[in-house]
């Protein structure tokens, strides 16, 4: 079929490539002149796109969560206290020495701080088990809201996935120094290993 002779422009005002990307017929065979039918399919395709789009828009409305650092959240709350009512996500670092866990009631309390602004800290309360690989100094992502009293009531606490954890040279130097594990044998060292929560003896 010679397109020049046998075709009439369909959505010819669009650049021809759109036919391949948007499934829009830029040329329609004159022989069939199925403009109506082509259009029907186009409408079908657009309908699918609209439905998916509508699902996305309504989904966004339910699921949008602002993501703050502790210092950003503090600024936001200072300027507009109504943010106490809004659920937010906060990425922060667990302050060493601040963790307390009541295993009977699954009541976890700890402080977090901003990694770039060490002064920006607040307390977190979470009802649930200690998340896996949760530890002091670890980065966590909290979801929940900041109560007016100044405590963050978390609904979820996520520990950052460790597979991207790159070794920091200082940590490795610290490992070079004998840790409690080498002195104390097996069981005693539980809870006081020589991970990155240990202060680094050799500094830099």
């Amino acid at each position: 079929m010679d397109p020049a002779r046998d075709c009439v422009p369909g959505w010819g005002f669009l650049p021809p490539v759109s036919g391949y990307i948007l499934l829009v017929p830029t040329k329609v065979p004159r022989k069939a002149l199925n403009v109506a039918r082509e259009r029907k399919f186009l409408i079908g395709g657009v309908l699918v796109a609209v439905v998916v789009g509508a699902l996305m828009v309504t989904g966004m409305r339910d699921a949008m969560v602002y993501y703050y650092t502790p210092s950003e959240l503090a600024t936001r709350l200072a300027s507009d206290p109504s943010w106490h009512e809004v659920g937010v996500k906060v990425g922060a670092e667990v302050v060493p020495g601040s963790v307390s866990f009541d295993a009977r009631n699954l009541d976890l309390r700890f402080d977090v701080r901003d990694q770039s602004v060490p002064d920006a800290t607040f307390s977190v309360h979470y009802r649930g088990p200690v998340p896996d690989t949760f530890e002091e100094g670890r980065e966590v992502v909290l979801e929940g809201r900041m109560l007016a009293a100044g405590t963050f009531e978390a609904t979820t606490v996520l520990t950052k996935c460790g597979s991207r954890y790159e070794a920091v040279e200082d940590d490795l130097r610290a490992i070079g120094a004998p840790g409690p594990y080498y002195n104390g044998g097996d069981g005693d060292s539980y809870g006081e290993g020589y991970g990155d929560s240990e202060p680094t003896p050799s500094g830099s």
Partner: peptide, 12 residues
């Protein structure tokens, strides 16, 4: 930064 949570993905 605004994140969307699991409800968005479920909805769609």
């Amino acid at each position: 930064t605004i994140a969307v949570g699991p409800p968005f993905f479920d909805r769609v």
